[in-house]
């Protein structure tokens, strides 16, 4: 679904991504693990085009998207849910969803508000509430729902469990699994290992802007030494 080949990106003068390469098969859920500043968020931002990569190739379903404008990349089928959710606080839930709406893709049934309310039942009761008057957990659900309205082939989730109460994180696990079952490919950046183990089937460890390990999540779970290496300061 997604192929990333020797991606380089800078943030100001800092060289953040230093030749990053990985790929995700359709229907997979890959988690990017890594320390702060390792380049997880920058990877996702480079994919969606909010950070312009300096060099490297990115193809989404065979289509070259590196260096394109964010809106063109989103229209090519990449969905992005940022770390801090970035809900439109003055817009209602329904209006937030409307902003995310894009035409259906590949003849698959499009996501509609009704389908999304089935996935996130909490949202159904607050259709006309402004985004600014929702709790952190509700905002995270809305952020994901808003991105799904664009019928993405692949969705990028930047630390979806960050700052959320444990019970809400459990909801989030169910929702992400359901999303995957409906055919959306998933790439998420995470710090919370428990959460990663619960939703991903593949893992990649990123260090200093390069992928240093890539494999099934079960292998990571079975290898304490590897986890230690990633956890160590």
């Amino acid at each position: 679904m997604l192929h990333v080949d020797t991606l380089h990106a800078h943030y100001g003068r800092a060289h953040i991504l230093q030749g990053l390469s990985f790929h995700i098969a359709p229907g997979c859920a890959l988690v990017l693990l890594g320390r702060n500043g390792a380049g997880k968020s920058t990877t996702l931002k480079s994919l969606i085009g909010l950070v312009r990569p300096t060099s490297g190739r990115i193809t989404l379903a065979g289509q070259d998207i590196a260096g394109h404008e964010p809106h063109a990349i989103a229209r090519a089928g990449l969905g992005y849910v940022p770390e801090d959710r970035r809900i439109f606080t003055e817009l209602t839930v329904m209006e937030n969803l409307e902003v995310g709406r894009l035409p259906p893709r590949d003849g698959r049934p499009p996501w509609t508000p009704e389908r999304l309310f089935a996935l996130f039942p909490n949202l159904a009761a607050m259709r006309n509430r402004p985004g600014g008057r929702m709790s952190g957990g509700e905002q995270q659900m809305l952020a994901i729902a808003r991105t799904l309205m664009g019928n993405p082939r692949l969705i990028l989730l930047d630390e979806p469990s960050e700052g959320l109460a444990p019970v809400i994180v459990e909801h989030m696990v169910h929702a992400i699994r359901a999303m995957r079952d409906s055919g959306v490919t998933i790439l998420l950046a995470e710090q919370n290992l428990h959460f990663a183990l619960a939703v991903a089937d593949q893992a990649a460890i990123i260090e200093k802007g390069r992928i240093t390990w890539h494999g099934p999540i079960a292998a990571l779970q079975a290898d304490p030494a590897l986890r230690e290496a990633w956890l160590a300061p």
């Binding site: 469990s161 444990p166 019970v167 994180v169 459990e170 919370n192 428990h194 619960a198």
Partner: peptide
């Protein structure tokens, strides 16, 4: 019930 949940995803 209101916060920790089953604890499977957070180390609780």
């Amino acid at each position: 019930a209101v916060y920790l949940g089953s604890g499977t995803t957070t180390g609780g």
